[in-house]
Simulated assay, not measured.
Amino acid sequence: MTGRLWGVGLGPGDPELMTVKAARLIGAADVIAFHSARHGRSIARSVAAPYLRDGQLEEHLIYPLTTETTDHPGGYQGAMDDFYADCAARLAAHLDAGRDVVVLAEGDPLFYGSYMHMHKRLADRYECEVVPGVTSVSAARRSTGPSAV
């Protein structure tokens, strides 16, 4: 039996603005996957930290580049395609072992999120579900004050 893949939206950066479902899934997952630049700090992991538990495996998916140039034969796109293929293979190994995997996504997993690259590569082989999150665009409107309804 294979594990299940979850793309979990964390909302706009405040752990208290995550959905109850997101918090529950993060606490229950066997594996927590998150992205960061080479510096290693992950906003997504820091937002999810209150809901993590001891014993969970972590897959730290470190982008090979962000805005800099690359000597990869395929250029920037080639480097990113290889990166996402490698990440998908790492997550597939957990799923094949029967582990449930949560991929943390700032905001919403499908709104400019890296989760969509995992979903595209894994959804045809594994059970996948997306848990939406409040985007920063939506949160920004609310932070301007009460609505004029």
Rank of each mutant, 00 (worst) to 15 (best):
T2R: 11
R4Y: 08
L5V: 07
G7M: 05
G7I: 04
G7Q: 04
V8W: 03
G9F: 02
L10W: 02
L10N: 10
G11C: 11
P12F: 09
G13N: 05
P15V: 07
E16S: 14
E16D: 15
L17P: 05
A23P: 06
G27W: 00
A28K: 15
A28P: 00
D30C: 08
V31D: 01
I32A: 02
I32S: 01
F34R: 11
H35I: 00
R41E: 02
V47S: 05
A49W: 02
A49F: 03
R53L: 08
D54M: 11
Q56H: 03
E59L: 15
E59G: 01
Y63S: 09
L65Y: 01
L65C: 11
T66Q: 06
T69L: 13
T69G: 10
P73F: 12
G74R: 09
G78T: 05
D82W: 03
D82G: 13
D86N: 13
D86F: 10
D86T: 15
C87P: 01
C87M: 08
A92Q: 13
H94Y: 01
D96S: 08
R99V: 01
V102E: 00
V102N: 02
V103W: 03
E106W: 01
G107N: 09
D108L: 04
L110Q: 11
F111P: 03
G113M: 04
S114P: 01
H117C: 07
H117E: 07
M118K: 03
R121P: 02
L122N: 10
A123W: 08
A123H: 15
R125C: 02
Y126G: 00
E127H: 13
E127G: 10
E129M: 09
V130D: 02
V130Y: 01
P132F: 07
P132W: 02
T135V: 09
V137G: 07
S138M: 14
A139Q: 06
R142F: 12
G145Y: 07
